[in-house]
């Protein structure tokens, strides 16, 4: 898994910084990490830009000497929070990888249940463990960069790493998914009578779900200036129930800060 030891790379004569990177995961499906090693075409190029010192999915030797930590998953237990703080100390740049890390992801759904004991029993069965409410990484430590998505898009990770290495600024789209969906010339899901959060969700996935004829669930969280309030109204007028709408907005936790969700109904 180690890239060949090449002398330091340059771009237009500027020597590039080859950071040591490590990958960590907390409560998640590890799907995001899988995305990264899935990319055979560009994996070698990618690995020649960085030095991977810790990658759970693919290596046995590990090191604590790293500059960029990619952290997948959300924090559900106190020992996880401690481990995350340690990672924060070691890393110059801490990257939240995927929706779970950025917002709590699908995991945060359990916050909706007031009775945590009940959840513990449902989720962990006869092996009760120490489980606190689900937290996004930034609720525990400072996060420098966020890579949105469930799962993340490998092209986006590569681009972000490349930009770090080149010293370019990192521009994640501020506009919503509809922009990409229209460029992909999809039929709008609303025309088909399906709900979609594309108009308020941050683009960057190349409208993955609408491309596959499914409405957006907002896994990348809100676009900047997302008009969540009016979107909710529109969906209601189109005949979708409060429950359907909230289920979507709630799903990945990205919209949790909006007042429209704070007033949410009981479950």
């Amino acid at each position: 898994m180690k890239a060949k030891e090449s002398e330091s790379k340059t771009y237009l004569g500027i020597p590039l910084y080859r950071p040591k990177v490590a990958f960590f995961e907390f409560s998640s499906c590890e799907g995001c990490q899988l995305q990264i090693i899935n990319n055979e075409n560009t994996l070698l190029d990618f690995l020649s830009l960085v030095e991977v010192v810790n990658f759970r999915e693919a290596m046995t030797e590990k090191s604590d000497d790293y500059e960029i930590a990619f952290v997948e998953g959300s924090i559900t237990r106190n020992d996880e929070a401690e481990r995350l703080k340690k990672i924060r100390k070691n890393a110059k740049i801490l990257v939240a990888l995927g929706s779970c890390a950025c917002f709590g992801g699908v995991n945060q759904l359990k916050n909706r249940f007031n009775n945590i004991e009940w959840v513990k029993k449902q989720v962990y069965g006869k092996h009760p463990i120490d489980t606190a409410p689900v937290r996004a990484l930034e609720e525990v430590v400072n996060v420098d960069l966020r890579i949105y998505g469930c799962p993340i898009k490998k092209e986006e990770v590569e681009k972000i790493v490349l930009h770090v290495v080149l010293g370019k600024s990192i521009d994640i789209p501020k506009y919503p998914v509809c922009m990409e969906c229209k460029a992909n010339e999809n039929i709008c899901l609303f025309d088909l009578g399906e709900p979609c959060l594309g108009p308020i969700t941050r683009a960057g996935c190349d409208s993955w779900c609408p491309n596959n004829n499914a409405g957006c669930w907002g896994c990348r969280g809100p676009a900047e200036d997302a008009n969540v309030g009016y979107m909710k109204k529109i969906m209601k007028e189109k005949g979708f129930s409060e429950k359907t709408i909230l289920e979507r907005l709630d799903c990945f936790g990205g919209f949790a800060q909006f007042p429209e969700l704070k007033k949410k109904g009981k479950h």
Partner: peptide, 15 residues
């Protein structure tokens, strides 16, 4: 100020 201008500050004479 940002992307291009930061990069520019790293290039040398002759670029």
């Amino acid at each position: 100020a940002g992307n291009l201008t930061n990069f520019l500050s790293k290039v040398g004479r002759g670029a």
